[in-house]
Simulated assay, not measured.
Amino acid sequence: MNRIVELQDLGYKDYKQTWDYQEGLFKGIVDTKVKNRREDADLKTNNYFLFVEHPHVYTLGKSGDLSNLLLNEKQLANKGATFYKINRGGDITYHGPGQIVGYPILDLENFFTDIHKYLRLLEEMIILTLEEYGLKAERSEGETGVWLDVGTPFARKICAMGVRASRWVTMHGFALNVNADLGYFDNIIPCGIRGKAVTSLNVELGEKEINEAEVKEKLLTHFKKLFEAEFV
């Protein structure tokens, strides 16, 4: 088993370009696994963890409802935003500046073969990171992602998640609002869930701007422990 994970920070990058890049890494891992089975080979499969920040974009998962996007094409253009239907699970979400997006592209056979556990550990990584900022974040039953004040009228999501997995290889991932412009969430019904708000770390802490590099370091520290991984 190979628990070495190649870390790549892609910086500020177009959503479609990043999606294509993810697909390439994903295909490389799957192709290696197919070759191993066909030829009874023992080639190691790679694991990747991508950080990226996207320009304003809305993405709709394969099981999502297009009516949860509240803008037409002209309105999208006026807001400087793009829209894509994509191949992850989940409904509609927003990505944009001030949001830390993480795409772990892992061969789970290097770790454990359990998608449910994979999602719970990603959530735990976020929960532990937010705990370091004094926030009590938690899961909301039946709703993937990380929330604050679950079970109250003030419940609000701070991190969305949606993944795709095939042959135990993952792609897509999580989007943690750190210094996000929450106004862009008003143009969708986030994750198809009505009546629940969205928040950002800087809003919760009452600060103008949070150091995103520091947040990334905390996320990676918790990922390493939870997945017993090593970054290169």
Rank of each mutant, 00 (worst) to 15 (best):
Q8Y: 08
D9I: 08
K13W: 09
Y15G: 12
Y15I: 12
Q17I: 11
T18A: 14
W19K: 09
D20C: 10
Y21D: 10
Y21F: 15
Q22W: 01
E23C: 05
G24T: 11
K33S: 04
K33V: 06
V34C: 00
V34E: 13
K35C: 00
N36W: 07
E39Q: 10
E39T: 06
A41T: 00
A41H: 06
D42M: 04
D42C: 00
D42G: 02
L43S: 09
K44N: 08
N46D: 12
Y48V: 00
F49L: 15
L50D: 04
F51I: 04
P55K: 03
H56L: 00
H56R: 14
T59G: 05
K62F: 11
S63G: 10
G64V: 11
D65E: 12
D65K: 13
D65S: 05
N68L: 03
L70K: 15
L70H: 10
K74M: 02
Q75P: 12
L76S: 09
A77V: 08
N78E: 15
K79I: 05
A81I: 06
F83Q: 09
F83D: 05
K85F: 02
I86M: 03
G89H: 06
G90P: 08
T93H: 08
T93A: 03
Y94M: 03
G96Q: 01
P97I: 00
I100V: 10
I100K: 00
Y103M: 02
L106Y: 05
D107T: 01
E109Q: 13
F111V: 10
F111K: 07
F111E: 06
I115N: 06
H116F: 04
K117S: 06
Y118D: 10
Y118N: 12
L122Y: 07
E124C: 03
L128E: 13
L130S: 04
E131L: 11
Y133P: 02
Y133G: 05
G134Q: 08
L135F: 01
A137L: 08
A137E: 04
E138M: 11
R139K: 15
E143T: 02
E143W: 13
E143V: 07
T144R: 15
V146T: 14
L148S: 13
L148D: 07
D149S: 14
G151T: 08
P153C: 08
P153D: 09
F154S: 14
I158Q: 04
I158N: 00
C159K: 02
A160D: 09
W168K: 11
V169T: 02
V178E: 02
N179W: 08
N179Y: 09
N179I: 13
A180W: 00
D181I: 01
D181K: 15
L182T: 12
F185V: 02
F185C: 11
D186G: 08
N187L: 09
N187P: 01
I188F: 10
I193Y: 06
R194S: 12
G195K: 12
G195C: 00
G195S: 12
V198T: 14
L201D: 04
V203R: 15
G206V: 07
N211L: 01
A213C: 03
E214T: 01
E214V: 07
E217Q: 14
K218N: 04
T221S: 14
H222K: 14
F223N: 09
F223D: 05
K225N: 12
K225Y: 09
F227S: 02
E230Y: 11
F231D: 10
V232R: 13
